[in-house]
Structures are given as C-alpha cells and as structure tokens.
Amino acid sequence: MITGAGRPAGLRRRAAVLGLAALLGVLAAAPAALAAPDPATAPARPDRAAGSRLCDVRVLAHFDRAAGQVAESIALEPGGSVVIGMIPARQVVRVARDGAVRVLATMPLPPGGGTTTPIVGAPDVTGVARSGSGAVYFLYSSGQGGLTGIWRLSRSGEPRLVVPLPADSFPNALVIDGERHRFLVTDSAGGRIWQAPLSGGRASVWSADPALAPAGFFGANGMKIHHGAVWASNSDHGTVVRIPMTKDGGSGRAEVRATGLEGIDDFDFTGRGNEILAAINQSSEFVRVDAGGARETLLDADDGMQGTTAVIVRGNRVYVTNGANLAGNDPTLMLAKLQRH
C-alpha cells in the first residue's frame, strides 16, 4: 500500500483520496472495464525480452470506490475465493469465484477518528493472510495502541486483536512464515519488519536494515518469503531487497536486487527463479522484473491499471488488485493467465 501526503504529485493525490472525501470528484473517470486481450492478435510491445507473459486478462470484481473500497491486499482461499483488505473502508471482504463481493468485517473508527495514524492520518485495513488451518488475519493501522496490529477473524465473524503493534507503526504487508510458526509484518512508517508468534502475543523487530527505511514517506511495503529469504519492496526508494534468514530464523544483511521501481507496492514470484511481477501503484503499471533487475511493463493505464496495489501468483493464475487511489474511480480485482517462456 502507498498513501499519504508530502511527496510527488501522484502520491499527494492519494492523500486527498484517503483523507479528504471532498476531493474525490477531481479524480479521473474510470476507463471502460478491461476487455480480455486476444494473445493471437494483440500487438506485441517493443523490445520484449524472454520471460513470463500474461494473457486472458479480465476483471473478476468491481468494488465501491465511493464507499472507500480501495482494494489493497490479497489472500487466496481453497476453491478459488479471495480475501481482500480494503482501505479506507476499514474492511475485509471475500470475493467469490463468480465475482460476488461480501463484507466479512468492518473495523470501528478509533476515538478521534484515527487522525494520528502515521503517514496517512486516517485508519486503514491493509495486509491480509490466511493460515494453513484456514484462519483469516489482517492488519489494522489506527494511530492508537490497543487497535493497531494483527487481527484475526473468528468463526462468528468478530475480529479479535492477536498481536498489538506500536501506535506509531504503519503495518502494511502480512506474511505467515509457517516453517517458524510466526507472522512477519512490514512497517512502512518505521522502515522495519516485525515478527510475532503465530499463536499471538508480543511482537519484536526482526529487521530494521537501512534498506527498509522510508525517505520521508513510505518505506518497506510488500513482502514475500522466497528461497530461504525475506524479500521486501521499498516504495520511496523504488527497490526490492532480499534479506537472508539465518539458521535460527534471524535476519541477515539486506541486499538490493532491483531498482528504478518508484512507487512500488506489492510483488510476487512467477516460479521462474527470482523473476517477479510487481504492482507499481504510483504510475498504475504492472511490470515484470527479471532475475537481473531489468524491468518490462506488461500492463499499464491503457490496459485498465488504476493505482495497482497487490499481486499473487498461484500456478498459472495471477490475481491483481487496483485500488484506484491515484487515478480513476474503478477499483478492481483482476485475473490473468501466466505464460512462462
């Protein structure tokens, strides 16, 4: 997730979307729903290097932008349904295979309206994750202790705080490290990654490497575990960094693996080594980054990208969310087929 004020013009627009409802009317009108391209007839982009491709791109669900449903994060469920965190609606929703949207939980406004929330000045639901047992977890940033942290949805649908995080943190991406029975959480305000037991309890800083730090706005953002390391994006620096895990699960020194991705939000691996697909929120692009760090735009605003926020790759399926937070007013969940070359 990227949101807030005090940075480049595109980022300031997101602050207006999140914090000032009166400015919603100045956002550009949404383009028509994205039609599925015909890979046999679609013109090839210039200078296409060998690597993964997308085809059969389609919109699976549209969300209610006027109600604050800025689609931000994705967790997949068995059977093809998807759980998504919504900012600033403060919601967790489920999208069925047929595109039907159901609200699972709406977090209450904190006292004072959450204006002390770091960076954005408004409370947000951000990362979501699903455990192997089927439990759904999500992150809530409120600017207040006792509300900010990792929450779990009970079977009754009532959310319960399981890991409190400091009021001055902005938890963004949530990953479950099943091998070590713990949560990992990026903190975009503090430029660090937290860890906490999967059973709940107290969190501790797993890494505060300088490569995670913000440059006055958003630092560590998206995160994945891949081949014995934690990989994280840094929105301000436009980088993807790799942090090796030590034998005891601790953090090693971060190394920058990709640059030139200003405004990057989330990303995921394609299954071709260290190749990734990345959501570039600020420029509404969806890009492929090869193992050497070279980037290629696969989808952009002309293809229906609007404030692209999150991506998950499962097999040959690619799920992408658009938050419509910097441009347009049609937040969506999109589904595409991945072709590896």
Rank of each mutant, 00 (worst) to 15 (best):
R102W: 01
D168W: 12
D177R: 05
F170R: 13
T106P: 10
T117V: 08
G146F: 08
G146I: 04
A105P: 02
R102V: 03
A105M: 10
T126A: 09
P166F: 06
S142K: 09
P111R: 15
V162A: 04
D98T: 09
A173H: 05
D124Q: 14
Y140S: 06
M107G: 05
M107S: 08
S141T: 15
G132K: 09
G178P: 04
R102F: 00
D168N: 14
S156D: 11
T115L: 11
Q144T: 14
P166L: 02
R182M: 00
T148E: 03
S156I: 02
R152F: 07
Q144G: 00
L174M: 10
W151R: 07
A122M: 06
D168H: 12
V120A: 03
G99T: 13
T115H: 15
T117C: 07
I119V: 15
G121S: 04
T148G: 00
T117D: 10
S154Y: 06
T117K: 14
Y137G: 04
G114F: 12
P159D: 12
P118I: 10
G149N: 06
R180M: 06
S133V: 11
R160Q: 13
P110F: 09
G149A: 10
V125G: 02
G178Q: 13
E179N: 05
A173P: 00
G99Y: 07
R152P: 05
G143P: 08
P123C: 02
L161W: 09
L165E: 13
P111F: 14
A129P: 04
P118Y: 05
Y140L: 07
P111W: 12
I150L: 01
G114R: 11
L161C: 02
G149H: 04
R130T: 14
T116K: 14
L109F: 09
V163E: 06
G143F: 05
A100N: 03
R152A: 13
